[in-house]
Amino acid sequence: MEETLATPDATRRSLSPSCSATVKSRAAGFERRTKRRLSETNASVREDREEAEEEEDEVKEKIEALQRIIPGGAALGVDALFEETAGYILSLQCQIKTIKVLTSFLQRIDQEDMKFGG
């Protein structure tokens, strides 16, 4: 009688802690997995944001440099700045051509004067 009655108690005691342990371990693992995935996604997002921010910072610095170089460029936005840069570059190119032509003309005149004078 005692042996037959004791067996169910033993089975109950043995099953209950194992079942509870398995449940807890499963829950903990699931939580850990979710946390890892979330942390990984957050890290990747942060890296992408950092890279984008660095590029944007570089571009902003160079835009500011253009604003300094071009006359009247400090108060302009990106679109207007690019237009002004294009116009300014073309005007500088024209100035260079005109000055080269003048210098060549004057040099020729000087040469002729030297020839006839000598």
């Binding site: 160079k62 835009i63 440099a65 253009l66 170089i69 071009i70 570059i89």
Partner: peptide, 8 residues
């Protein structure tokens, strides 16, 4: 932008 700045 670097190239443009240098050219100007």
């Amino acid at each position: 932008l670097d190239e443009i700045i240098n050219y100007v």
